[in-house]
Amino acid sequence: MATQASRSAARLMISPTVILLFLWMAIPLGTTIYYSLQRYQLLYPDRSGFVGLRNYTRFVLSPGFGGAVANTLILVLGVLIVTVVLGILIALLIDRPIWGQGPVRILVISPFFIMPPVSALIWKNMFFNPSNGLFAEAAKYVGMAPYDFLGQAPLASIIFIVSWEWLPFATLILLTALQSLDGEQLEAAEMDGAPPLSRFWYIMLPHMSRAITVVVLIQTIFLLGVFGEILVTTNGGPGTASTTLPFLIYKEALLDFDAGTAAAGGVVAVILANIVAIFLMKAIGKNLD
């Protein structure tokens, strides 16, 4: 509700944002689609021309593609499951009366502020390293053979690192949601004879559902683009064992200099991301206001 004058002023103030975002979306997307239909080798710019969908077939049929899609989904789902489940547990733990809740919160939130290359390098070198990483030292201490995490289980290791980065986010948001729960509701449930597990299941979890939706949505946005961690730890390997879609595109574009195929990959990535996005937007649209 407002007057006509304020409404036209509002339109004027919104337009720069809308125009910029529209251009930011439309121009690269349009160009990507255009390149994806062209032969475009960065090293041989003279060999060009319309090639139809050949770039797509090349990208989709390339040996790494299926694996990259699968790796991307495993990475996203794996991190989501780990962070949400652990996040709920830690939130429940911190929400109870404890001494030093402030410092505990600060310790728990800290990994979120670490830039991806740093966390990836710390884990890779000082923890996962099979010869003198801390995990290897611990294994030696208990008399086990050190395990080459990044060599033997590269994707799981990356999921571990990324989960460590995002666990604080999930925890903090779920904790905030938990703290907004009316204590009388829990006491009412207790009076109604609900044991702790039922109270969690029927009262706390539904109360947190909106927060969980939000965590899933926002993490997915960021997780679909995970790149730095892979670049500095495994470089997509060994082989293609930890190559995700963004990484595959990066390889085509900046390592193989095949802009056409990379662009086709980009379009595929956009389509896949939008499939995920539709589901998520529906969920959050229902949950917002």
Binding site: M25, A262, V267, V270
Partner: peptide, 13 residues
């Protein structure tokens, strides 16, 4: 939704 566009998708252009 514009944030949903994967950066890798538009890296080339």
């Amino acid at each position: 939704s514009t944030k949903m566009m994967p950066a890798a998708g538009v890296l080339v252009p």
